[in-house]
């Protein structure tokens, strides 16, 4: 474990917590893409499938973190699609998730480290995570604005994988560790946030709201 991965995981936890708090406190999921949250839930379940297969006692923080990610993302989907369904902005959350899932699944079958079920699921989860934020960014571009709290969520969510890139550079240099698939997907994922990062740094930090040119 290095400082970059530690802060990356903390940033990821913060993002999940910020979103849950936003929905729970405002009792509304306006401005939140349910599809992106569904995709994240799928990512966690397919990536941490080993938790279900050979359940080992929660002997380390990693197992606990995996369970937190899975349960928090499923609970977030429950809030969006059931509890606060009336506030779900289905009209604007209109990006076809199939256009993200099918290519990720196909690519996972073509480009992977080992052609076995667990590895294919892990690879699918990595590819899907890289594009899972697209419905959320698409929704913001459709509505033309993002609530400040949602911007903080997106900043934490984008920072997590950006910090992982620093972690991979660190591990390449000090541990000769290379996980090419995770690195390439992580770079693509972070690039998708660049536009938002620019808006966040120039606007939200100054206390303004993000309003996209309609």
């Amino acid at each position: 474990m290095n400082i970059f991965r530690l802060f990356g995981d903390l940033s990821h936890l913060a993002a999940i917590a910020i979103l849950l708090l936003k929905i729970w406190k405002t009792r509304s999921c306006a401005g939140v893409s349910g599809k992106t949250q569904l995709l994240f839930a799928v990512c966690f379940i397919t990536r941490y499938i080993d938790l279900f297969l050979h359940f080992v006692s929660l002997y380390n923080t990693e197992k606990v973190m995996k369970l937190i990610y899975i349960s928090a993302s499923v609970f977030t989907c429950y809030l969006i699609f059931f509890k606060f369904k009336a506030t779900y902005d289905g009209n604007h959350d209109s990006m076809r998730a199939e256009f993200l899932i099918v290519p990720a699944a196909g690519l996972a079958c073509l480009i992977n480290t080992k052609f076995d079920a667990i590895e294919i699921l892990w690879t699918f989860s990595i590819y899907l995570e890289a594009v899972a934020i697209l419905p959320q960014l698409f929704l913001i571009s459709k509505t033309g604005e993002a609530e400040t709290i949602t911007s903080h969520y997106l900043f934490a969510q984008g920072s997590y994988r950006a910090l992982y890139i620093l972690n991979w550079i660190y591990r390449y240099h000090y541990e000769s560790h290379v996980d090419t698939i995770a690195i390439v997907a992580g770079v693509v994922q972070t690039i998708l946030y660049c536009d938002f990062f620019y808006l966040y740094i120039t606007k939200v930090v100054k206390g303004q709201k993000i309003v996209l040119p309609a």
Binding site: Y69, T113, Y164, Y172, S176, H177, V178, T180
Partner: peptide, 10 residues
């Protein structure tokens, strides 16, 4: 460089 098969990151 060592390519990982098991994945030790979240």
């Amino acid at each position: 460089k060592r390519i990982l098969t098991h994945h030790d990151e979240l």
